[in-house]
Design a protein around this nucleic acid. Structure first.
Lengths: 365, 365
DNA sequence: TTGTACGCGTTATCAC
DNA sequence: GTGATAACGCGTACAA
């Protein structure tokens, strides 16, 4: 798109400036070490050292070089530096979806921490597809990133095929899994205690006098949904309430299926509902309102994910907060630590965050 | 983190395989052209050509090389290729925020198109800060990306300082601005017709018999809010309704300010409200419901952004859809076209998308 | 048909 | 103090 064929005149700075300014159509190409060296009639290595304030270089040359560099706004080329250092300062983030509030907050957390450490974040969406997940990882694994932070696609979890992860870790690329994880891969992991979350929520409902508590979840291959369901079951049993299969709806994915939820409400009998995400919950509340039920007196609701929807829904929704941003920060921290650690000792940790119940108006206060 | 000091044995494939497999602790480092060349005792360029199926290379060598490469899963190093081609196949996306649904959908659109074209997306958040925007751009501009897609931070728009954009474009790096744009920079732009959006929404309310239509917007430095406000004003005037300043609330930013909105509702008299985003609108609906008003009979609502909130709120919210995903796709398309075009002719276009009114229950149907 | 040499931009080592 | 040289991994024009 541009070439840099103009010979710089080499008398004074403002003359250089001139030659650059009028370099064809005011195009100011990036300047390199070589350019500086040529203009100042010194060697490339001298320039390199001068810019690093090396003791080897005379005060005089250093000043000259640095002034010139500043004038032309010299910045080292990231790509060249990466090639040299074998460090890209990029983190690859592969997630199933970006429109879900939870993932969005995680990205924000990752971004925040990574940026502070001088890393960039490359985001790839698997869109719940195994193949896309694999392709994205392969693209990035060939030198583009120093490590991965990822949450598995539902298809991957359903399939149980983690070879792409295995390959990457075997190449020595650090990986941090969050939220939707697998125990079949040795790497750092960050999750919230989903089972506990399900337990706390269910317990809360029981304590409020609810006895016929329904559950809207997804099929068990989704690790998080499974854990939440287990918490639900445990809470019921702990309180001597039998688990009634007709009160449990398991949808194939986290995608909204209005018809099936509507059906479920027609046919099932309940005085409270626990949902594995906020969308199911808020939609369900709508159905309850349509039927003329009072929330939370006639029927109470709790969802997962403390998003905008929960906060601004009517009534506002009590939820199990997943602390996505914190999760992102921790993931980034764990990853960067691994990336920057020199030692080979492979010790992996799994960080489990405590879920928090955020009480709002869909439950009795 | 790993070294590749093992000398490969060079008898047969499965022997190579063996040496790799047991290379220290099952670490399989990435293989390079040089490695293949050494093992097969040919030159690097031969390997390079063979892998590209060059006609120059004998069928025999090609097969040998390709087999070996496949066996060890050779993939060219992205960084090296980037350095050579001066093309990174990365797109830098700089946006103010990622938790807003609109930006999220734009990213998805960008990702979709970019990925299909073999590009990765590096996401940076300015978090509405001018400084962060500048820093992020500088980080990426030093070779990390082929071009930028961005939406300006509110601080940048307030300041009116676009030198960081100017620098980048002057270096010949293509830029596409979307949504929050400035006309002071020559580059491609994608927006929706926000003025028209505001107009259509207001007109709709008027047609439904509303006369005291309020507006909740932000200060005018935010380009989109300003345009929406203009549409609102024009619609009122076109229908002979005077613009009543006491019915207009301008908040400093898009951030939620519950107190000020609540105040506004206490003191102002209205039978409909147009809001520049969905959060303001849904929150306002809550206030109206609290006051015992009926929606949409007593008071109707329209917001901007067709997100989850609008869809699942109660009542569901009529909105001006911004078609974020489409916007992202178009932005990516325009950018990639510029990146890949060889010609120097600098012609820039501004694509204006039509907003769409999505009718729901917060207005009369 | 294969190999040599050079360049992309940077850094580090070593020689002068 | 300064500079030449090699190296990171790849690609290609040019020799052989």
């Amino acid at each position: 798109m541009l070439k840099k064929s103009v010979r710089y005149s080499s008398v004074f700075c403002f003359v250089y400036f001139g030659s650059y300014l009028f370099n064809f159509i005011t195009l100011k190409p990036k300047i390199t070490l070589k350019d500086i060296a040529r203009e100042l009639e010194v060697s490339i290595s001298t320039v390199s050292k001068a810019l690093k304030n090396s003791e080897e270089i005379s005060r005089d040359t250093k000043e000259k070089v640095q002034a010139f560099a500043r004038l032309y706004n010299y910045k080292p080329n990231n790509i060249a530096v990466s090639l040299k250092n074998k460090r890209t300062k990029n983190i690859g983030v592969v997630i199933p979806d970006i429109v879900h509030h939870f993932f969005t907050t995680v990205i924000r957390g990752i971004e925040k921490y990574a940026n502070a450490k001088g890393y960039n974040v490359i985001v790839c969406l698997s869109e719940e597809s195994f193949d896309k997940e694999v392709i994205n990882m392969e693209m990035l694994a060939n030198g583009s990133i120093d490590g991965f932070i990822m949450s598995l696609s539902s298809e991957t979890q359903a399939k149980g095929d983690y070879n792409h992860l295995k390959e990457v870790t075997e190449q020595g690329i650090p990986v941090v899994l969050f939220d939707r994880i697998t125990h079949e891969i040795d790497c750092d992991k960050v999750v919230i205690d989903d089972k506990l979350g399900g337990y706390l929520a269910t317990k809360k409902l029981i304590e409020q006098g609810k006895q016929r508590i329904a559950l809207i979840a997804t099929d068990d291959y989704l690790s998080v949904s499974k854990a939440r369901s287990q918490g639900y079951t445990k809470a019921l049993l702990d309180h001597g309430i039998p688990v009634e299969p007709s009160r449990i709806l398991k949808l194939p994915t986290m995608e909204m299926d209005e018809d099936r939820i509507r059906d479920f409400f027609e046919t099932s009998d309940m005085d409270a509902v626990l949902c594995v995400n906020e969308i199911f919950a808020v939609y369900s509340m709508g159905l309850a309102l349509e039927k003329g039920l009072k929330i939370p007196e006639d029927i109470a609701f709790i969802g997962f994910t403390d998003g905008l929807l929960s906060k601004y829904a009517h009534p506002s929704l009590t939820v199990v907060a997943q602390h996505g941003e914190r999760m992102g920060e921790i993931s980034a921290q764990m990853l960067i630590e691994k990336v920057e650690s020199e030692n080979e000792e492979e010790t992996f940790q799994t960080k489990i965050l405590e879920p928090t119940l955020v009480l709002r108006n869909s439950t009795i206060n």
